[in-house]
Amino acid sequence: MAVTEGAGGVAREAAVPAVLGGSPAFPEGLPLTRVRVPDRDELARRFDAILDSGQLTDGGTVRALEEAAAAMLDVPHVVAVSSCTSGLMLALQALGVAGRRVVMPSFTFSATAHAAHWAGGEPVFAEIAPDTLTLDPAAATAAAGPGTGALMATHVYGTPCDVEGLRAVADARGVPLLYDAAHAFGSRRGGVPVGGFGAAEVFSLSPTKVVVAAEGGLVATRDAALAERIRLGRGYGNPGDYDCLFPGLNARMSELHAALALVSLRTLPQRVAHRGALAAAFAARIAGLPGVRLPALAKGDTSTWKDLTLIVDPTAFGCDVPRLAEALRAEGIDSRRYFHPAVHTQKAYARTGEPVRLPVTEEMAERVLTVPLWSHMDEPTILRVADAVARIQEHATKL
């Protein structure tokens, strides 16, 4: 087979995509995510100790996780919870958003808006910056009118937000700033760990994340009073005498989940560095390929690259995202449209109030496609994914 110069100036076989009859890049299949638990022996020892103790919640393992996470994030307080969603709910409740507007991006996971709704707030959607896909401070300023109780931004895919710009908006409006940091444990803004930029930042430890507890979340804050209220809230608002101070949740993290998170946390810096190297190799391989790019990362910032997401210009690329996803499926490559549809267009929110138009968000939601990236993936695998994308682009007009 002839050899041609591929994307990034790298020589590769000039093959046709599998969807047009070529051989699939991954006949065995390549899933979007694949979890590997580090150091199973240590995890087994921790599980045995927990089970022997007979204390499955409210024990020393959860406290050890909170202390280790606080040290890594360089914040004084971390509260472990059952999920990122419950952490957002409790943080928003503690910040007093009930009956008030919560300005947020629509380009995010639905749980961002759900949490505001459950805390009694009104989700108000604002535009994103098209280069980073994170909340645009100028759009947040325009949306944060009278009755606003908080701003909430998302570090999408692990890309740090414009925290300085958003802080200025929150300060000017006199409202707290909260971050949905589900993707971002290990991300850095100008070298500073994500975790201490808002009134609180809430992380996810679900199986698709870079730190894994099977299920769970962490609320990071510099505010001792806020941390204490969230601690009370995760246990029904019960201070210990069953005379509940406010309506809380059962949002405790179990000792077993905390043990898995502790073991996962230990090798986080190496995993973040490796994921960054894989993303850089992928970006170099597709450099110069028409109509496809990755979200922009500011100089000095670090992303966890929780998701490796392509932004596709269908005109320049030659086909739209659904056709690209179909062609990748033929190659054996799994993919997801994170985040499509945008939250403000979903049935849960499109039916409420006046119709919302967010042209940038809606366009970006149509253009994004996430391809596989795991913490233990090797470079040849990620380059095979990049080459599959390039082959599809070269033959896109035939799809």
Rank of each mutant, 00 (worst) to 15 (best):
L308D: 03
P76E: 09
E28C: 13
L260H: 01
A261E: 03
V156K: 03
S375K: 13
L249Q: 15
P17N: 14
A119R: 06
A80D: 06
V194A: 10
A98K: 15
R101C: 03
T57I: 14
S106K: 02
C244P: 07
D243T: 07
I230H: 09
R46Q: 12
A350I: 13
D41F: 00
P341F: 06
L399W: 09
G6V: 00
P322V: 10
P207H: 01
E228F: 10
H344P: 13
L383S: 11
D307G: 13
P123W: 08
P247R: 15
D180T: 09
A287F: 03
K209P: 01
R45N: 11
D171L: 09
V81K: 11
A283P: 05
R63P: 01
R293Y: 04
G99V: 05
V371D: 11
A316Q: 13
M253Q: 15
G353H: 13
R231D: 03
S83H: 14
L88S: 12
L43F: 08
V3T: 13
P247E: 12
D58T: 02
D48M: 12
H344F: 04
Q393K: 01
T134V: 15
A150Q: 09
A225Q: 07
V156N: 14
S264W: 04
E366I: 00
T345I: 08
G233T: 09
G248K: 09
Y349D: 00
P27S: 06
F47I: 07
R285M: 08
T267A: 05
G217C: 10
P31S: 01
L268D: 06
T304P: 02
T315V: 11
